[in-house]
């Protein structure tokens, strides 16, 4: 790398990101619990619920079995919830006074913000890797390109969600209220997505706001993208094709990253977070 400034900046971003990654070391019990409940969800709930679902669903999933369809949905919802909780850690830091320490570091605010978002997102990906492995093992996915693309888009998705949570944290400025709000948004967005039902089924209900919410929902986009990667026949379900989904994911991620940096930089000055 010829530009020393760029090299320095990257070094700083990685240093800040490593703050979040290091926290993973202390979360072995938490991770074990998450794996336990995810396994329960995959092996008990998903299997039992797919048993009672009528075979008519195949017409809406492009022939993909409901169990397989649902597996990629719950992986996405897990990725979403983990990104939310990683971002929420920042709200806890405001309460605990760690932000004051961060501000005393000789690091540019914008680099600090990028490092935090990236750190939270990377730790989300690492944290959810075992669950992804469980799902991909059940689906017998071995194509390296599919796995790589899944990880890249999962990271993009996570960056967008973490950026969104940071905005929320600054806007609300109360850990308790953020906790409630984040919980409500978490539950609502998962319900208004294609995690459980394919888009044509939602469209068939005739409830336009529900359909639009599911169509615009980032969770829908990532779960459908993963479904196309693993089951090419699912492409038939996406009326607009895969390109709008890819554009949406990149725009969602970069958009929230830029807004979060801008907001973070502005709000951190002079105790603006208090």
């Amino acid at each position: 790398m010829k530009n020393p400034d760029l090299r320095n900046n990257l070094k700083i971003i990685l240093l800040v990101a490593s703050w979040d990654l290091m926290k993973l070391k202390n979360q072995k019990v938490f991770l074990a619990m998450r794996i336990a409940w995810f396994t329960l969800q995959v092996l008990v709930f998903a299997r039992a619920i797919s048993y009672i679902v009528s075979q008519g669903i195949l017409a809406y999933t492009g022939g993909v079995d409901y169990y397989y369809f649902y597996l990629l949905g719950i992986y996405t919802s897990l990725l979403y919830s983990t990104s939310i909780s990683r971002g929420y850690v920042v709200a806890d830091e405001f309460d605990d006074g760690i932000v004051e320490y961060h501000l005393s570091l000789p690091i540019k605010r914008s680099l600090f913000a990028v490092g935090r978002v990236l750190g939270c997102s990377l730790s989300t990906i690492i944290f959810t890797l075992p669950m992804m492995a469980v799902v991909y093992a059940i689906l017998k996915v071995s194509n390296f390109l599919s796995i790589l693309l899944s990880l890249i888009f999962a990271l993009l998705f996570s960056i967008g969600i973490v950026g969104f949570v940071l905005l929320l944290v600054f806007a609300v400025r109360s850990a308790d209220l953020t906790d409630i709000l984040v919980g409500a948004i978490d539950a609502l967005l998962v319900r208004l997505s294609t995690v459980f039902y394919p888009l044509p089924v939602i469209e068939a209900t005739g409830i336009a706001p529900y359909y639009v919410a599911a169509l615009m929902n980032p969770i829908s986009h990532l779960s459908d993208f993963l479904r196309v990667l693993v089951f090419p026949e699912y492409y038939l379900v996406l009326r607009q094709g895969i390109v709008p989904t890819i554009v949406y994911m990149v725009a969602f991620s970069m958009g929230f990253l830029v807004i979060a940096i801008e907001y973070y930089e502005r709000k951190l000055e002079a105790g603006g977070w208090k």
């Binding site: 048993y51 009672i52 679902v53 009528s54 075979q55 008519g56 669903i57 459980f196 039902y197 089924v201 939602i202 209900t205 409830i207």
Partner: peptide, 12 residues
């Protein structure tokens, strides 16, 4: 609205 229509009526 949704799941009711997806469930196999033979079961529920």
């Amino acid at each position: 609205v949704i799941f009711r229509g997806l469930v196999n009526p033979a079961f529920i």
